[in-house]
């Protein structure tokens, strides 16, 4: 497994743990209410599990396992690293803005970073989505 996939996947596992923790706190609070502020975790719960966990897992496995170019190259690795940086900056900005009540502009910048991550990953992976060489 290449180093970037290790970063994608271990970061995804961290988000899985954090997202499940937030979800468990909210579900327990729904059953036996102990703090009204628990609901503030909902946006971060969704962000961590959908983007931080699932999308990042897909990027990590895709970078690892999609067909390589001749010579074993994975193509433009810098774009994939850019994708990794942008998705994590985006998830943290969006979740942080919603939890901490920061200006909406930060959430917007976060979403733009996530979109940029998708573009960077698509540009990296596009040429690798093809039949295997004979």
């Amino acid at each position: 497994m290449p180093r970037l996939s290790v970063w994608f996947l271990r970061t995804a596992l961290v988000y899985l743990a954090a997202g499940f923790t937030f979800g468990a706190l909210m579900l327990a609070n729904k059953g036996v209410p102990f703090s009204a502020s628990m609901w503030a975790l909902l946006p971060a719960h969704e962000e961590f599990l959908l983007l931080g966990w699932m999308v990042q897992l897909a990027f990590g496995v895709g970078f690892w396992i999609l067909p390589r170019y001749s010579g074993g190259s994975r193509g433009n690795v810098h774009l994939a690293w850019l994708s990794f940086g942008l998705i994590n900056a985006g998830v943290l900005l969006v979740a942080g803005q919603e939890i901490l009540g920061l200006p909406a502009l930060m959430g917007g910048i976060g979403r733009a970073a996530e979109a940029g991550s998708a573009v960077a990953f698509a540009l990296h992976a596009w040429g690798r989505v093809r039949p295997a060489y004979p």
């Binding site: 923790t21 468990a24 579900l27 729904k30 059953g31 036996v32």
Partner: peptide, 18 residues
Amino acid sequence: AWGWLLVASAVLQWAAGM
């Protein structure tokens, strides 16, 4: 009164994730 079922569910699913 069934709220404790959700608390137990939360604990079990959290433990599964960990």
